[in-house]
């Protein structure tokens, strides 16, 4: 009986929302890229760079409101920088997206570690910058159970989770979104219509990378308060899986982010209450779930038709 109550424990559902925030942000960023036909395998590296950048800015400049905003902006910019290299190689030079993505993934992992070491140096105990203060929404946070789950977060979580709305709105309710989605299906058609193909792709690329970088900065700023090289520990990859799981649609991606975050929150809950299950098995769960989900969803999922395919205006097909 206690076991069942644990499953809907207010603190655990609260943790679910916190953990879901970076997953959702990164997955929405990846969605924007994939919708214009770019499969970004460097996402894990971009998340890492965003995390290192976010940490370093606050570590150097102190934790005030402007420096935190600066840290988030710097995280977004650093991921965009990698994204620009990715775009230049895959869109302009038409190199293979998968190999370029993997090379930039490695670049991101190396760069984030180097950045941290360069700024912080070698320390025996990793420095902490503390996490953002919680912002209890007056009134609403007093509601017995829901208040604890929904209205006692830091600002990052509120803003991060609500990013879903503008992304969905732009992609599915505006002419711009229609054009972006068309790019991912048939760049040839978009080009033939005289639409600014390159500008559409680059704007989605920059916006998507910004979201991925911001997702990275969430880990030091909001969740951990410190930095380590394995801080993202595969969350970037999970975000990539979420896009498939969500079948390239924002709302289903959000549902998936909540599901994965819930599974991750389980380990915090049962890591404390139960000694019967070794923690490593709980930490495996999201990845095992990702494979199971892939099996269930894959056949029905419809990826953007032009995903990973280079487009050359001068080719006949």
């Amino acid at each position: 009986m206690d076991f069942l109550l644990d499953l809907v424990d207010a603190d655990m559902l609260r943790t679910t929302l916190v953990v879901a925030t970076p997953l959702l942000l990164a997955a929405l960023g990846e969605l924007l890229l994939e919708r214009v036909g770019l499969l970004n395998l460097a996402i894990e590296g971009m998340v890492g760079v965003g995390a290192a950048m976010g940490f370093c800015v606050v570590f150097v400049a102190g934790r005030t409101v402007p420096t935190v905003l600066l840290a988030i902006a710097a995280a977004a910019l650093s991921a965009i920088l990698i994204g620009v290299v990715f775009g230049w190689l895959t869109l302009h030079l038409q190199a293979n997206q998968i190999t370029v993505g993997l090379a930039l993934l490695i670049l991101g992992l190396g760069a984030s570690s180097l950045l941290y070491r360069g700024v912080v140096g070698v320390t025996t105990t990793p420095p902490s910058i503390g996490t953002l203060p919680l912002w209890r929404i007056p009134g609403l946070s007093e509601i017995p159970y829901l208040g604890r789950v929904l209205f006692q977060h830091d600002l990052f979580v509120y803003v991060g989770l609500s990013t879903l709305l503008p992304v969905w709105w732009v992609l599915h309710r505006t002419p711009l979104g229609l054009r972006l989605r068309a790019v991912g299906e048939s760049p040839k058609a978009v080009d033939a219509l005289g639409l600014p193909l390159a500008r559409l792709r680059w704007s989605a690329l920059v916006a998507g990378c910004a979201l991925i970088g911001i997702a990275g900065s969430f880990f030091p700023l909001s969740l951990v308060g410190g930095y380590s090289d394995d801080i993202a520990s595969g969350r970037g990859w999970l975000a990539l899986m979420l896009v498939i799981f969500g079948r390239w649609r924002p709302w289903t991606i959000a549902a998936g982010a909540l599901l994965f975050a819930y599974v991750e929150a389980l380990q915090f809950q049962f890591g404390v209450t139960s000694k019967a299950i070794p923690p490593q098995f709980l930490r495996m769960l999201p990845y095992v779930l990702a494979i199971i989900v892939l099996v269930r969803v894959y056949g029905r999922a419809q990826a953007p038709a032009a995903l990973t395919k280079p487009y050359d205006r001068e080719s006949r097909f």
Partner: peptide
């Protein structure tokens, strides 16, 4: 005082440069 993972960066730079110059 370079961290060991810096080598990842160097390797990636090599690969990215070569990939860039291999395309048409």
């Amino acid at each position: 005082g370079l961290p060991p993972s810096a080598v990842l960066l160097f390797q990636a730079v090599v690969v990215v440069s070569i990939l860039a110059f291999e395309t048409a």
